[in-house]
Write a protein that binds this DNA or RNA. Sequence first.
DNA 1: ACCGAAGCGGAAGGACATCGTCCACTAGAT
DNA 2: ATCTAGTGGACGATGTCCTTCCGCTTCGGT
Lengths: 212, 212
Amino acid sequence: MTADPETTLRADARRNRDQILAAAKSMFAVSGPEVPMEEIARAAGVGVGTLYRRFPDRDALVRAVAMDNFERVLIDARVIAAEETSSWRALERLLRQSVALQLSVQLAMVSHRALVILKNDPEVRRLRDEILEVLDGFVHGAQAEGKLRPDVGAGDIAILFATLLRQMRAKSPDVAEMAARRCVGIMIDGLSARPGTELPGRPITSRDLDPD
Amino acid sequence: MTADPETTLRADARRNRDQILAAAKSMFAVSGPEVPMEEIARAAGVGVGTLYRRFPDRDALVRAVAMDNFERVLIDARVIAAEETSSWRALERLLRQSVALQLSVQLAMVSHRALVILKNDPEVRRLRDEILEVLDGFVHGAQAEGKLRPDVGAGDIAILFATLLRQMRAKSPDVAEMAARRCVGIMIDGLSARPGTELPGRPITSRDLDPD
DNA sequence: ACCGAAGCGGAAGGACATCGTCCACTAGAT
DNA sequence: ATCTAGTGGACGATGTCCTTCCGCTTCGGT
């Protein structure tokens, strides 16, 4: 039995470890999981040495960040499941509010490297499956309520969401291509004028895109 | 007046140049605009030397690819504008079918580097503005037809589309954040069960996401 | 207050990847 | 036939990032 870092570490070391994790999480989100270790260390306010003592290599760090994110998603999802009575509302809320969800999805989708790391980690997979299970529940529930179009699955939503954040990666090129088509289809439906949710903010015009 | 590469080049050189451009385009699309020059050369079936003689450095190549993509988008858009009588149909068709549009948007959004290169190129900007003008026409037209929700602008659509393909980049963090919110909102509307377009293929389930 | 051990930072060495040049050779054009 | 534009790819230069190492600092128990 390996000693648990949560309890074994000296107080300051524990603090540093948390800071590193937090810094890595936000750096990964902004710049992808290949940011120089030194930048992560700097952002965490520690030296590279400290970073390396805590996480022997980049893979370990990526894994730790992913675990942390996934855990939070699961917590979010369960809280939402407990609080909302409508599955559609739950789904909507999860997609809209869960920063953790965005971060996890992003991390997993951004780089091939990260994907491989996470794919082969049984703990991560277990968490992932638990999350998908909850999501599946939301999806089926929302469809039973007649709120969610019946022709989508949890995978659609995961992909749509993931794609929205970054690029697509799927089992086969065929699935990826189909997924892309479906995403576009959904967006188009989202765009077409039918009574829907009001969008926040104001319309973004082409002027807003001007690079300056 | 610099001699035009289209007419001045020897036949084989011309052919090679085209192959390089095509190869670069697809490599950029797959791996981003920072792929090693050698890989591009290999994909084009030429040596690195040839690549470098034709395009003095990476920036020149990126610019050339972007120009080519943008030009095609404009052509696509104008063909569509001429053929479709409904602006909504035109918009829909442009978003769905224009591979060139996807490629351009992607290239411009993928890396900060590419963005800077293109931002400062007057020719690219001019083309971009022409495209946005056509897009604006579609948007306003489709809204007048009552087919497109009135609370979106061409910018929304550009961002939504761009985001769908890769990550977001905007004037300010504020705009970026708002844009992200709005994209999600649109997608949610696209997802909610109201009579919409039928999605192609079959629902993608969480099983389809399994990494193997 | 003291001390041993745990922890820290960041300079430095090393592995690796990509760039872009250069020149001997090939093959269109006239 | 010949001249010259064009070609390929090895190679030295450059830069980036990883990881180790060790002298110094801080914690925490007594």
